[in-house]
Amino acid sequence: MPTPLPPGAAAPDFTLPATGGDALALSSLRGRPVILAFYPADWSPVCGDQMALYNQVLPAFRAHDAALLGVSVDGVWCHRAFADDRRLHFPLLADFEPKGAVARAYGVYDDAEGTSERALFVLDAAGVVRWSFVSPAAVNPGADGILDALDRLDPKSTP
């Protein structure tokens, strides 16, 4: 298994097709914390739970001014159907062509499965990885680790 980018690493920039727009460049979010949620696939039950949970926790992420991006190797039409079905209010990015290139850049591509791992990154406003976590594919990691990492970025706003 590759190693996920550790805290302190510069987050590689990328531009990917996104739901709710044409394409999204990571660099366009500079100045805000960014949560990258890599997940193996749309529609699998655990992913649905995880994305549904993050959808519901969005206000807490936004309290930190953080942007949440879901990333998988699914294509943009698949993402659009999934996001519509689950009423997701954050963009899903299609790491589809070349397949998994962004996941590889972050060290979370699973060659055997042909998908990204279930991996979380919290980037600070300068685009530096401040926290990363890889969960077993079958385990929904929840949101507590993300919120703890955001708290550490910005201690003043701890609820």
């Binding site: 549904a52 949970l53 519901q56 929840g142």
Partner: peptide
Amino acid sequence: FAGGVRSGVNGTPTFFLNGERFD
């Protein structure tokens, strides 16, 4: 809800036994 998120609730139902998440 907010307390649950901070405790690692990752979907419903999530159970805790004497304060430890039952996985």
